[in-house]
Amino acid sequence: MVQIPLWRQKASNRADGVVLWDYHVICVQKKGSGDTPATHLVWDLDSSLAFPCPLATYVLETFCPSFQTFSELRRCFRIVHAPIFLRFFASDRRHMKDSNGNWLRQPPLYQPIVAQDGTVHNLDGYFQIRATDAVTGTGVDVTNAVFTEKLGVVVTENQLEEFFSQIP
């Protein structure tokens, strides 16, 4: 499994806060309406940055775009609209167990998440992302897919901020 570096993470023991994640979940919120310019805020429970943090600051400080990584470590992002995610996501926590079925860490106290359609586990479909899954370009079709597709869309690091700037 590929691991991607993210900076300014609370789980780090390093001064720069870098951690290698195999997947990471954040929430991006659009704030503003009418004549007020839209601002996009990132809610990341694992970040040492402001909570919430402006998207542009988050990208700069967490992804460190100027830091050159190997091409196989190219970051991609699955964007799923929150109401769609809340209806379809499911996890029975199997990813938290070793090959013998023992817990790797103590599981959360709340019940496992079951999707509205009864699915008990589909986490793999959300975090398995290949660079070839990324959409080409942005626009109405990509935006519509985010609002309708169970797994949303995959964008590259270069498309991330542009994508959110086009959300109506």
Rank of each mutant, 00 (worst) to 15 (best):
residue 1 M to F: 09
residue 3 Q to Y: 10
residue 6 L to H: 06
residue 6 L to F: 08
residue 9 Q to M: 03
residue 10 K to W: 13
residue 12 S to T: 10
residue 13 N to C: 07
residue 14 R to A: 12
residue 21 W to C: 03
residue 23 Y to C: 10
residue 26 I to G: 02
residue 27 C to R: 06
residue 28 V to H: 08
residue 28 V to P: 02
residue 28 V to S: 06
residue 28 V to E: 09
residue 32 G to N: 08
residue 39 T to R: 14
residue 41 L to I: 00
residue 47 S to F: 04
residue 48 S to R: 07
residue 50 A to D: 14
residue 52 P to H: 06
residue 54 P to H: 06
residue 56 A to N: 12
residue 59 V to P: 01
residue 61 E to A: 08
residue 62 T to K: 04
residue 68 Q to I: 02
residue 71 S to W: 01
residue 76 C to V: 01
residue 77 F to A: 00
residue 82 A to S: 15
residue 85 F to V: 07
residue 87 R to P: 14
residue 91 S to W: 09
residue 93 R to P: 01
residue 97 K to M: 10
residue 98 D to G: 02
residue 105 R to G: 11
residue 107 P to A: 04
residue 107 P to W: 09
residue 108 P to A: 07
residue 109 L to C: 04
residue 110 Y to S: 12
residue 113 I to Q: 15
residue 114 V to Y: 15
residue 118 G to V: 09
residue 120 V to S: 12
residue 121 H to L: 07
residue 124 D to K: 09
residue 131 A to S: 13
residue 147 F to W: 05
residue 147 F to N: 06
residue 149 E to T: 10
residue 157 E to R: 03
residue 160 L to Q: 06
residue 160 L to D: 00
residue 161 E to I: 01
residue 166 Q to C: 14
residue 166 Q to M: 14
residue 167 I to Y: 10
residue 168 P to S: 11
